[in-house]
Every structure is written in structure tokens, then in C-alpha cells.
Design a protein around this nucleic acid. Structure first.
Length: 669
DNA sequence: ATAGGGTTAG
């Protein structure tokens, strides 16, 4: 039996085992175990036979004993059969046998190794039954993988269970959780975890501190970023190139170019040299600022430091050019890059986008197909880019075709895909396609996100279907996802435009009980409508509410108020507001200027015209065509005849010859 | 052993 088993011949080994029945008391459970043991040694054992034999033993005897289970469990681990390893452990539990720590530990290690996180969680819970805990390397890897897969709450569960039992040993266990929290906008929770671990006596390292820096940057908490940077240093933790790169990118992305460049000097001074990633961040920003000379200089510096550009550098450059509208330049550079070596899919995606931008979506598609024939592997971004290209060219039916015919990866089309088509269908008012996409999304169990909802709100508003739209927005307000303020403003604007200020105001007031906060624009929309409907009471109420919310009136608020006053002929009150704006450091727009100018002419308040024109010249204000139209009309209709000097000034302004400093002084005088 | 950069939808 043993020699059959060891050669992998299960059926002969099994019939030999059965022959033993001729001997009284045979075969024993140890004979069965021996068969399985040697069969497993054969290296070509199959789980089916083992499981069948096990169920046979359970039904007909001899009943399995501890060593049966241990043999089977070790065997399944040897075969790399995770599912049946778990099955055996469950069987042991049901039969009141205790699997060894080592075998469960090995099972978890295998689950982690093959990346089967769901089974990993099952094994982890099995271990908890016996009060076993994962060994440190397996645990750290497991938590890291859970975090990377977006299963942060599972990672937190594993972590907190073990923390309670004091089975967490180092920062490497929870740093991935800190990062995962910070990457998903939960820096405050990360902060709490940070302090909890500190209290427990753990010493954070630069990676832990950097996670928080990343989180604060991501959430735009600038003060926290710099406080934290000081804090880590006062705790004896030196920021490294990663920490600095994150801050530099944050400063760039928030328009603080000089500060970012200062930071780069600072890190160099502190002996922390920028690396390729840092340079890529800088390259991208220089591109956005169209500083091509600085780019070539920087590339030389990189070259001197032995850093050669990679796919990210090329994507930063080409993506940057594309963003500032230099599609031709981007294309040229891309073709040059392609002819000089291989780059990854992101760079090709930028190329597809360039083509689509120039309304050559069809060419992008044929290039994609051609490249796929020679081994190019597109991703969802490639497909979505081309699909959006067709949408942009209003080729929505072909975009739909692509949805069904692209060779999507295992995950299939994603939210971006559906939203691209949905937004186009909404823009074109194609309700059949809207319904089709919504149906498809429901079928794929894909939730509408803020993009989809915003498209739908716009569509429903423009088709006048406010009741449906209100249902949608109100369900968003009280559930997730919380609508962004732009979506709300879109609805408020459309309601007001359709003379439904009352409804708009009701929605606005309901915001108090929700997560969404109105912004200055929301107030401006309502104030504008209230003025138009001569509802002075509401205007006052809104202004007061705005102040209590800590929101300051902006150029648009003043614009509405001034225009309202002008229409009522209250010129001096309007001029007062104009001055108030200037005092508060707000630059009035030319539209407001024209409104005032027009009203003043209508009322014949010629001295006020001079005051306004003076303000215009002193502030270096550029008149536009409307301004010149108003002035020309005033001069040509003769109403200026009685004021020849005023007329002369107007002529001067109309001739647009007042830009020179001397002229400005003269006119102001 | 853990961490930072580029490309898609409102």
C-alpha cells in the first residue's frame, strides 16, 4: 500500500488498504493515515482523493483522529490548496480537535502569499478561536495588503484585536493603516491612532509622521502641515526627501510657487537631496507655468546628478503641455519619446488624449488597435480616454458601442466610463441613453457618485423636471454621497431662473440639517434672485446669515446689490457700495462699472460720471466694448453739449488713448 | 519591512 501510495497511485493503494479488511481489526486509522501521508509525499497528490477518503472515514470508519487531521492539513498546505486547508481546520473545530499554531500560522502565511485576503481574514478568525496570533512578518504583510486593497476597516479590525491582546510589536504594523487613513481623507482618525500608539509607548518613525503630512496636504490643512513638520523635528524625527516632496507638491498645487522653490532650497541645505520623484513634481509645475527655459535647465541639472527621466517625467511634461493647451507641442514631444525607447501606458494615454483633443478620436482608436496587435496593454484610462473622445465629438452611439466592445480587464468598465457617457447623454438630452446607462449601472451594482449625480441634476434642471431633481438632491443631502456645493448651486440657480425662489430658499434652509455647507456662490444666487423679485427683506436676511457663517460678500454679491440699487435709481447708495468694495480690497469688475455708468447717464448725474471715470483711470481700469458703447452714445445723442469739458474727457476715453501715464494724470486732474 | 511623482468622468 505504501509503495503504491508513494508512487502516486491512489486507487491501487486504496484497494490494497481494503484488502486488509481480511485481517481482524484492520485497517486501523493509522493505516489510513499512512496511506494519505505517503500519497502526499508522491508530489502528484490530488485533493479530491484525500477529501473523499476523509469523508469515507467519517461515514464508515475508522474515525479520523488528531494525526489524520494534521496529516491532511499539512498535506493541503503542501499542495498549496488554501480552500481545503481551511476546510480541514473547520472540520477539526467541528470535531473538537485543536489545530497546531504552526499549521494555522502557515495557512495564514499562504493566504497572504497568494494575496487571498478574504480567506486570510477567515484564517485570522480561526486563529482567534484558539487564541493564536499571527507572527510579526505575516501580520505586517497582511495588514499592508488589506490596506493596499482598500480594505481599511478589515485592517483596523485585525489590528485592534491584536492591539488589545498586546500582540502588536512595531510601527511597521500600523504605518500602513496611518497611510491608508490619510490617503482616504481621514487624517483626523489617523491622528487619533497616532496618539493612541504614542500613549502605548511606540516610537513613531519618519514614515509615520510623513503619513500625517500627506493627509494634511491632501485635505488642504496648510497650518497643520507646517505645525506637524515642526512637531516631528522637535520629537527628534528628521523629515526626508519623501516628506519634503509631498510638501513641495502641495505648495505647487496650491499656487505657492515661490514657497515651494524655497522649500527645495531648504531641503538641499539640510543635506536632503531631491530625487527623481521630486524633480518630476517640479517638471510638471514648470510645464503648467509654460516655463520651458527652466525645464531644459532642470533637465541638465538632473543629468549632472545622474538622474535620467522616466515615464513619469515624460507624462509630467506631456501632460503639462496638454493641460496648457499646447497639444501640438505635446504630440511632437510624444512622438519623439516613442521613437527613442519604451514608456508605460500612462504616457500612451496622454497621446490618445492629445489625438482626442484634436477631434481625432477615430484615429486614437485605430492607433490603439494597431498597438494592441504588437503587445500594448491598454488600461481603463486608455479606453475611457478614447470613449470620452467620441463623447466629446457627440458620437454617443459609437461611444456606447465601445463600451460593449472594448476588451475591459477583469473589473470591467468603471464609474468614469459610465459617467462619461451619462454626462454626454445628459448634455444632449438623450433620455433613452440616460435610462440605458442607469439600468446598466444598477445591473453592475455601481452606485451613482457625485459626478453622475451632478450630470443628472443638470439634465433634470434643463428639462424643467424640478420635482424629480428635488427628489434626487434631497436624497443626496441626507444620504451619501453628500452633494458637492457646486451641484447644489446648480439646482438653486436653475430654480431661481425659473422663478422658484421660494423652493430654492426652502432647500437652502434645509441644508442646516445636513453635511453640505452653502458657500458664497449659494448666497449670491439667492441674493440675486431676491433683488430681482424686489424681496428686500430676504436680501437683508441672507446678508445677515452670510455674515454669521463667516462668509464675506465678494465681487458678485456687490455686483447684484449695486445693480439692484441702480435699477431703483438709488445712485448714491450704489456709489457708496462701490466705495465699500474698494475699501475692502475687492476689485470691481468692468460689468459693475458699466452698470453704474449706464445708470448715471440715464439719470443725468454728470458729476458722478466724472467721479467714476476718475476711479477708472486711477485704478488702471480697462473699459470694454460696453463701456465705450455707453460713452459713445452719450456723446452722440448730444446730451453732453452743455458740458463740453466732460464731453472732451469722454472723447479721450473713447479714443482709448489714456493708457499713458501722463494722460492718466491729466484726465484724473 | 512601511511612505512621495504622471494619464480618464461633473
Amino acid at each position: 500500500m505504501q509503495s503504491y501510495a508513494i508512487s502516486g497511485d491512489f486507487s491501487n493503494a486504496f484497494s490494497t488498504l481494503n484488502l486488509m479488511k481480511n485481517i481482524d481489526g484492520k485497517p486501523t486509522v493509522y493505516d489510513c493515515n499512512a496511506l494519505m501521508y505517503f500519497y502526499l509525499k508522491s508530489k502528484n497528490a490530488c485533493w479530491q482523493e484525500l477529501v473523499e477518503m476523509y469523508t469515507g472515514m467519517k461515514r464508515f470508519g475508522p474515525p479520523p483522529v488528531a494525526s489524520t487531521f494534521n496529516t491532511l492539513l499539512n498535506g493541503m498546505l503542501l499542495l498549496g490548496d488554501l480552500k481545503h486547508a481551511i476546510f480541514i481546520v473547520e472540520e477539526m473545530y467541528r470535531n473538537h480537535f485543536v489545530p497546531s499554531f504552526t499549521s494555522l500560522s502557515k495557512t495564514l502565511k499562504m493566504a497572504v502569499k497568494v494575496g487571498n485576503l478574504l480567506d486570510g481574514l477567515v484564517v485570522f478568525e480561526l486563529m482567534l478561536r484558539y487564541d493564536y496570533h499571527p507572527i510579526e512578518p505575516t501580520l505586517n504583510k497582511f495588514i499592508l495588503m488589506l490596506c493596499d486593497a482598500g480594505m481599511v476597516s478589515d485592517a483596523c479590525f485585525v489590528f485592534s484585536v491584536l492591539l488589545r491582546k498586546s500582540y502588536v510589536y512595531s510601527v511597521y504594523c500600523y504605518n500602513p493603516i496611518l497611510w491608508a487613513l490619510c490617503k482616504t481623507g481621514r487624517s483626523y482618525t489617523a491622528l487619533q491612532l497616532f496618539y493612541l500608539m504614542k500613549k502605548k509607548g511606540f516610537v513613531h518613525n519618519v514614515c509615520s509622521y510623513t503619513a500625517l503630512i500627506y493627509g494634511f496636504c491632501r485635505e488642504g490643512l496648510q497650518d497643520n502641515v507646517f505645525q506637524w513638520l515642526d512637531f516631528m523635528q522637535s520629537n527628534g524625527c528628521k523629515p526626508n526627501v519623501i516628506t519634503y516632496t509631498i510638501i513641495v507638491k502641495f505648495l505647487f498645487d496650491n499656487g505657492k510657487f515661490e514657497e515651494a522653490m524655497d522649500f527645495i532650497s531648504r531641503m538641499e541645505r539640510e543635506g536632503c537631496n531631491p530625487d527623481l520623484l521630486t524633480y518630476n513634481v517640479i517638471l510638471r509645475e514648470l510645464c503648467h507655468r509654460d516655463r520651458l527655459d527652466d525645464i531644459s535647465e532642470l533637465i541638465q541639472v538632473m543629468d549632472q546628478k545622474g538622474l535620467s527621466p522616466d515615464s513619469y517625467s515624460y507624462a509630467a511634461l506631456c501632460g503639462g503641455l496638454l493641460k496648457i493647451g499646447k497639444v501640438g507641442d505635446a504630440c511632437e514631444l510624444l512622438l519623439d519619446i516613442f521613437s527613442n525607447g519604451t514608456v508605460d501606458v500612462a504616457v500612451y494615454n496622454i497621446y490618445f488624449r492629445c489625438l482626442c483633443q484634436e477631434n481625432k478620436s477615430r484615429e486614437a482608436l485605430s492607433q490603439l488597435k494597431r498597438m494592441m496587435k504588437v503587445g500594448f496593454k491598454p488600461n481603463n484610462v486608455s479606453y475611457n480616454t478614447i470613449l470620452s473622445g467620441f463623447c466629446k465629438e457627440k458620437n454617443i452611439n459609437e461611444a456606447l458601442e465601445l463600451l460593449y466592445h472594448f476588451e475591459w480587464d477583469v473589473n470591467g468598465p468603471d464609474a468614469v466610463t459610465f459617467n462619461a457617457i451619462l454626462s454626454t447623454a445628459c448634455r444632449l438630452g438623450n433620455s433613452a441613453i440616460i435610462q440605458r446607462i442607469l439600468y446598466h449601472m444598477r445591473y453592475e451594482d455601481m452606485k451613482l457618485n457625485i459626478f453622475s449625480l451632478t450630470c443628472l441634476v443638470r439634465y433634470l434642471c434643463s428639462s424643467g423636471n424640478f420635482s424629480e431633481c428635488l427628489k434626487l438632491v434631497e436624497s443626496m443631502m441626507y444620504n451619501s454621497p453628500t452633494p458637492p456645493v457646486v451641484t447644489l448651486n446648480m439646482l438653486l440657480h436653475n430654480l431661481c431662473k425659473n422663478r422658484l425662489l421660494g423652493t430654492a430658499y426652502r432647500i437652502f434652509q434645509n441644508l442646516r440639517n445636513t453635511q453640505c455647507l452653502p458657500d458664497v456662490t449659494s448666497y449670491n444666487i439667492l441674493i440675486h434672485a431676491s433683488i430681482r423679485e424686489h424681496n428686500h427683506l430676504l436680501v437683508g436676511q441672507l446678508l445677515g446669515e452670510m455674515k454669521r457663517q463667516g462668509l464675506k460678500p465678494d465681487v458678485f454679491t456687490y455686483g447684484s446689490l449695486i445693480s439692484g440699487l441702480c435699477k431703483e435709481g438709488k445712485i448714491s447708495a450704489a456709489l457708496q457700495l462701490w466705495n465699500q468694495m474698494l475699501e475692502r480690497g475687492l476689485i470691481p469688475s468692468v460689468v459693475i462699472f458699466n452698470t453704474l455708468l449706464h445708470a448715471i447717464f440715464q439719470r443725468g448725474k454728470f458729476w458722478d460720471i466724472l467721479l467714476l471715470l476718475k476711479a477708472m483711470v486711477v485704478q488702471g481700469f480697462q473699459p470694454d466694448e460696453v463701456t465705450l458703447g455707453i460713452l459713445s452714445q452719450a456723446v452722440s445723442n448730444g446730451s453732453m453739449k452743455r458740458f463740453p469739458k466732460v464731453a472732451k474727457v469722454l472723447d479721450w476715453v473713447i479714443s482709448n488713448d489714456f493708457q499713458k501715464e501722463t494722460d492718466q494724470k491729466t484726465i484724473a486732474g
